[in-house]
């Protein structure tokens, strides 16, 4: 029996709800999404639930292997590093540094990029052409080189690397917002609301943004996996988080000298980075798949 017209009023899901509906279909995407949520929760609560402090030294237990090996100790589940710091606690707090900060970085650059991008989409002529070329130049400089230059200007340190990565990510968002806004502005429904007397900002706010938000989110997941890798890479190179901080890249750099005696100090942070990047990429992949499905239907 057809149940098309049970309710009087018709309910149109917002673009975001439609995206979610298509997004949750493939199981592998949901696994990635749960890992992503798990990492977010871990990043928020890590400071309260870690068994030890991330910088506390247990001098009796230096370079203890993980608990499943014969020399391991169950009170240090993932072993300790060369200064007797608990690996599990450090990895958990690293989640709030590497992963949590990458979310903040992406959010900030998303906001700035969207503002610049939509302003530039509204301008035409030589100004927008120059901006376009400028963005192309910036986008073709390797991201790490750009980040290194910005760190050289600001000086090393975690906070400065974050600013550097924000600035590296902004052009991508400007680019995608600009193209998406221009594309939407060419459509008829924008013309309709323009005929109703809406000014450009009103059209942006009420007509265009709800329709391009999913593209921005999908770009944001791409940017986030790049941000995690960049934060870790700069930490690894010693330009980002200082050594005692449990940032995953800095932990890797710390473990390098003991690679052959204590391989877990290198395996574990690397796996943590890999895990979080894969979780982010799975979410992004699911998002793009959902967008494609919606376009085709």
């Amino acid at each position: 029996m057809a149940r098309d017209k049970v309710y009087q009023e018709e309910d149109f899901p917002t673009p975001l709800m439609q995206l979610w509906h298509n997004f949750k279909q493939p199981p592998v995407v949901m696994i990635g999404f749960s890992c992503f949520i798990f990492l977010i929760i871990l990043a928020v609560v890590a400071n309260f639930i870690t068994p030890y402090s991330a910088v506390e030294n247990h001098l009796d237990y230096l370079l203890l292997p993980p608990a499943w090996s014969n020399e391991g100790n169950i009170s240090f589940l993932l072993g300790t590093d060369n200064l007797g710091r608990d690996m599990l606690s450090r990895l958990m707090q690293g989640a709030s540094l590497t992963f949590g900060l990458s979310i903040i970085v992406v959010a900030v650059s998303l906001v700035i990029g969207v503002i610049i991008g939509s302003l530039s989409a509204l301008t035409t002529g030589i100004k927008s052409s120059i901006l376009n070329h400028f963005l192309d130049v910036i986008l073709s400089i390797p991201s790490l080189l750009l980040a290194i230059i910005i760190v050289a200007i600001l000086g090393p340190g975690l906070e400065n690397t974050l600013w550097a990565i924000i600035m590296v990510l902004i052009p991508q968002f400007v680019h995608i917002t600009r193209n998406a806004v221009k594309e939407e502005f060419a459509k008829d429904y924008v013309l309709a609301s323009r005929l109703d007397g809406a000014n450009s900002f009103r059209i942006l706010r009420y007509s265009v943004f709800p329709n391009i938000i999913e593209k921005l989110i999908s770009q944001a997941t791409l940017a986030q996996s790049a941000a995690i890798l960049d934060i870790a890479a700069l930490g690894f190179l010693g330009l980002g988080a200082p050594l005692p901080m449990p940032e995953w890249g800095a932990m890797l750099a710390n473990g390098i000298d003991m690679f052959y005696i204590a391989p877990w100090t290198v395996y574990l942070p690397g796996l943590a980075i890999l895990f979080s990047v894969i979780a982010t990429n799975l979410v992004g992949e699911g998002m793009r798949h959902a967008l494609k499905v919606r376009k085709e239907s």
């Binding site: 996996s225 890479a233 890797l252 052959y260 290198v266 690397g270 890999l274 894969i278 990429n281 992949e285």
Partner: peptide, 22 residues
Amino acid sequence: AMIGYSIPVFWLGMLAILIFSI
């Protein structure tokens, strides 16, 4: 492919040195 472009390159490089050179 997903693993390939998610893997941090510095980690991959170190693993490659450990396995194939050492």
